[in-house]
Design a protein around this nucleic acid. Structure first.
Lengths: 161, 161
DNA sequence: CCGTTGAGGTTGTTACATCAACCATAAAAC
DNA sequence: GTTTTATGGTTGATGTAACAACCTCAACGG
């Protein structure tokens, strides 16, 4: 729907259409997937990201800093999130042996169990709502476009000084 | 690439790359634009959306319900948002004459002024971080892909039954 | 009328994200 | 070896998003 017949202004219709479509996507897609995940498994998207990173780590354990860099989160955000997840028994926080400022984050058995179920649910939802809606060509160009935007974002400021 | 249909393991490449790229985009792009908007104008993205809708409305006035449908927000979210914006003087809430359950939302002069500045800032940011990173073809295919996903989302339950 | 049903909005609660201030420890300067 | 300085993490405050419960009023059906 929203086939946008409103080309009243002559400039940048393609850019505006793309932005509008993207805004719609952002508002709808992630919400849908996360709602399914939460309802089925009781895990939020941040929960899922943390558990995924820990699952793929050696011994299911990471320093807080490694987790932070991998997720690209602010440290206070991670700290709050880890506290909540520890309270729910999904992971444990122990003092690090080699650097007493640091903390080792370890997946608990409950965390492993919860994530195993969540992974199935999440991947099915991504397949259903995202991947299956696009052809192979669309997937490739979508990825290319996203990557191009991200590359530009990471670019240092091109301006003066 | 991705012409391989060997098994469940290989159909992941294109789809996973696209999903990963999209996740990165979602995490970075909107945050960047909104941070610029907030720093320059003191308006958040939800503020901006509300003001945009009101600006384009007749008499700069909308019923709460119209706003809600246009933005596709939950009613409690809109209610909280409107209360905060009213406290800041960006809009006013008055009882509706024809239906006393309803509320008329009207843009104030301060709201008009704030939005005029914000619009420039926002459009510049979208151009800089989004549109200028993509070619015309990329813009078109990006929009098409987003629209395809959205269409699938709005679909009732697909297929069987 | 009267009771029921449903729509439009508000409020409270919880979870999350961001910011600033802070604490403890490690690393560097001297 | 003591003083800085920087780093890793925590805490508290504030604003926001999602959900559920609720209140008011409109629309009907007797």
């Amino acid at each position: 729907m929203a086939t946008n017949t409103s080309s009243a202004t002559t400039h940048t219709t393609a850019a505006q259409d793309a932005w509008t479509a993207y805004q719609g996507l952002r508002a709808q897609l992630t919400g849908r997937i996360n709602r399914e995940l939460a309802r089925s498994t009781g895990l939020s998207e941040p929960d899922y990201e943390v558990l995924l990173a820990l699952t793929e780590a050696k011994q299911q354990t990471l320093r807080s800093l490694e987790l932070r860099c991998g997720l690209d989160w602010e440290k206070s955000r991670l700290s709050h999130q880890l506290r909540r997840m520890e309270e729910r028994g999904l992971l444990s926080r122990d003092n690090c042996a080699t650097d007493s400022r640091s903390v080792d984050i370890r997946l608990t058995d409950a965390g492993k169990t919860a994530f195993a179920a969540a992974r199935l649910c999440h991947e099915a939802a991504v397949e259903r709502y995202f991947a299956s809606a696009l052809s192979e060509e669309q997937l490739a160009s979508f990825a290319a476009a996203s990557t191009a935007i991200l590359a530009r974002l990471d670019q240092p400021v091109h301006g003066a000084h």
